[in-house]
Structure formats: structure tokens, C-alpha cells
Design a protein around this nucleic acid. Structure first.
Lengths: 207, 207
DNA sequence: GCTATAATGGACACAGTGTTTATTAATGGT
DNA sequence: ACCATTAATAAACACTGTGTCCATTATAGC
């Protein structure tokens, strides 16, 4: 993390800008926002904005990267889990703790993340998010051999990452009615059993 | 479909605008495009643009909706497939014909669709695309009973739709090396067996 | 060829951008 | 409590793009 800014004025201004960004993105999406409008709503001089950010794109990227960094930290806890533990969690219908923490964090920052992942959001944030997920999965998938796989590994990873993302999006859009733990469990079950079986379509699995 | 425009000038102008939109989106994404630039590159008077579209947002939406309509047509063919046929395809490792046709269509329009689904694209297009997929899946899932499902049906659908989308995105981004048929097969296999089994993680399935 | 109309070139007021300057006000260190 | 430092302000700047006119030209369909 960067050295903390000392001046309270900087912290205050930055918080005002970020909060107003969240509000305005909820209303009209990133496209529709102008620096003019944002600074007016934040009750800040327009020139002050340019003291902190190059342009509105820069503001968005910095805000996004902060979130991605936090998520990256949370997911890196997956490295500490041994293959034996992985099997244990799956066979006991118990979600991984770091996945629960991921949903906890998303819930804490749901306002901004929801708009970023919504129809008026930023597709490059989706790409960033899928990328951290991909890295996490890649580390965990080192142990399995390619010969045993039914499909190309890169497609499998793309499939799973996107599915994760979709679940997160649906959870956010439907108002986060389920607890982080419940959502993690849903995710685990579909992943282990597969969509077909999770839907109750297949009694036996004779691929 | 709307009554066909008769005047060749209209067709020509529209084609010029749409083609240039595709080109520019590839270069700099929708955000960075200006009507000024687009009409200059298309060698069209700027005023002419406003004869056809309200603004650049309108242009994007009309272009997107055309694609969504085509895809919707292709996917509606899924209704004609009986439950018996569904089982047949799955158990014979044979993808649905309409899914192959979907990938065929995407390949034919890959230039525009790729940018729309890419990091500089339009998140609302993703939403539209997932929505047609959702409708298709919903029709096919009428036959299965909720009691047998391991997870809430809306989450399962969100999961699968997103996974479809992710596979399409990865296929486009990696240069469409696989044939539409091969991709459809990959999709079918992961869906039926599930990510865990497709990865070769689980020998037996004791959920 | 004649009529309808699409496309053009040029102008308009307006809104937003990003930068600069001099000035005011708040902050942290001592 | 003071003061040097520096963040924030107000006002102006040139510039780019927008959306909407208008009169004029060129092209299409019959």
C-alpha cells in the first residue's frame, strides 16, 4: 500500500470525490458523468479535482484498482489451503473461508461494486475481476494433470471465472438476500456437481 | 423486421456509419469516440449523422439490438427440440445444432461483437445477451421440478448464462481457433459434467 | 426528364475540458 | 500559539465537441 497521505484536507477531498462518483454512477453510469457535475455535487472547486486526478478516467481506474487490490489480498489466502483441505471442504458441503470473506467484502462495498458490474458499469472492471479469479484458480489447478481433462484448461477457467462473476452480479442485483455463507455454498455446489446435476436433470452421471 | 429502406443513399450512409463505428470501437472503445471523428473517418457530413441517429448512444443501441434480434431468432429454434432429443444429444456427446448456429453467427460478426464484449465494450450489451440466453434456458427448464434442485433456480440460471458468455468471450479473444462445433462441444461437456469433473478432479461423484 | 428527398457546407449557441494565475484558508510541526 | 507549508479556491483562458439550423447541391426512383 502507498504511504498514507498526512494532510486531512487531501483525505477529505478524496473521500468527497469518490463518494460522489459512486452516487453519480448509480444514477447515470460512468459515461454520463461530467467533471463539472461531479465537483458541483461534491461542493468542490473544479480545479481541485485536477489536483488529484488526471481526468475522470483516471479517477475511475484508481477507484477500481483499490478494490481489486483488496480482493486480491483476500483471494491470496487460498494458497494456504492444502489439497487435503480442499477435498475436505467439498465433501462436507462446506464453502472455503476465503470465498466467504470475498462475499463479505463485496457486501461491504456493494454500492460501488454493484454499479461497476451493472449495465452502466465498466467492462474493464469485469476483466480485472476475472483476472484475479483466474490467477487464484490457476494456482489451485497446478496439481491436476492435463491428460485427465475433458476440455481445454483455458476454456474451463474462462467458464468458471465468468460463472463466479455472474453469481456475484446476480447476488448484488437481487438485493443480497442470501448471506455471504449461503452464496458461497451455492457456488460450491454448482461447481462440484455441475449445472446439469444441480438442476436435478441427471440422476446418474454417465458421461 | 422494419420495412426495408428503398433509397440506396440511406443504405450506403448507414453502412458507412456502422462500419466506421466498428472500426473506431476496436481502436479506442465506445467512450473515446466522437461523432466528429466518426463522420470524418466515414467521409460523411456531420449533419448527415444526425439525420439518421439521435446521438452516438442511439447508434450503439440500434446496432446492438440488430444483433440481439438475430441471436434471438437463432436461439428460438431451441423450442422445437423435445426432451427426448435433449437427452439424446447429451448422451452422444453431440452439441445442439442451434448452439452451433449461434457460434456461426458470432463468428460472422466477430469484429463488432468482440469489441462489444471486450474491456472497452458496452456492459449493457452483455446484459442483453445474457437475457436472451436466460429466456432460452428458462423455456427448456420448465420441465424440471424445483424440489429436486440443489440450489435456487435463478442462481443456477445466472451461473450458466454467465458461463456461456465467458466462453464466448474467451473464444473471441483467443482468435476463434476452434470451430463453432468444437466450442459447442466444450460448452456441452462442461455443462453436463460440471467444472469439477471436467477438470478431472473427481473420479466418482459422491455429492 | 422531373420531382422528391438525401446529403452537403457552413453557421450558431452552448456545455464541458484541462490549464493557469493570483489569492485565501487550513494544516502540521515546533 | 505561531508560522511556514501547501491544499483549496475563484476566475479566466483556448479549445473541442455537441446538436440544430439553413440554403444549396446532387442523387434516386418513377
Amino acid at each position: 500500500m502507498p504511504e498514507k497521505p498526512v494532510d486531512r484536507r487531501i483525505i477529505r477531498t478524496n473521500r468527497l470525490i469518490r463518494d460522489t462518483l459512486t452516487e453519480l454512477m448509480k444514477e447515470k453510469g460512468f459515461e454520463g458523468i461530467t467533471v463539472n457535475e461531479l465537483t458541483a455535487k461534491a461542493d468542490i472547486n473544479r480545479g481541485t479535482f485536477y489536483l488529484h486526478y488526471r481526468d475522470k478516467q483516471d479517477l475511475l481506474e484508481q477507484s477500481e484498482d483499490e478494490i481489486i487490490n483488496e480482493i486480491s489480498k483476500i483471494l491470496s489466502a487460498s494458497q494456504k489451503i492444502s489439497p487435503e483441505e480442499t477435498l475436505h471442504y467439498g465433501s462436507h458441503d462446506e464453502p472455503f473461508p476465503f470465498i466467504i470473506k470475498l462475499f463479505d467484502y463485496i457486501k461491504d462495498n456493494s454500492s460501488f461494486i454493484k454499479t461497476l458490474l451493472g449495465p452502466k458499469g465498466d467492462p474493464s472492471f469485469q476483466v480485472k475481476l476475472k483476472e484475479v479469479l483466474r490467477k487464484t484458480l490457476l494456482k489451485k489447478s497446478h496439481q491436476l494433470r492435463k491428460e485427465e481433462m475433458m476440455v481445454p484448461p483455458d476454456y474451463l477457467i474462462a467458464y468458471v471465472c465468468s460463472a463466479y462473476l455472474g453469481l456475484i452480479q446476480h447476488w448484488l442485483e437481487s438485493g443480497m438476500k442470501e448471506s455471504p455463507r449461503d452464496i458461497s455454498l451455492i457456488l460450491l455446489r454448482i461447481n462440484l456437481s455441475g449445472p446439469g446435476k444441480a438442476a436435478g436433470l441427471l440422476n446418474t452421471s454417465k458421461s
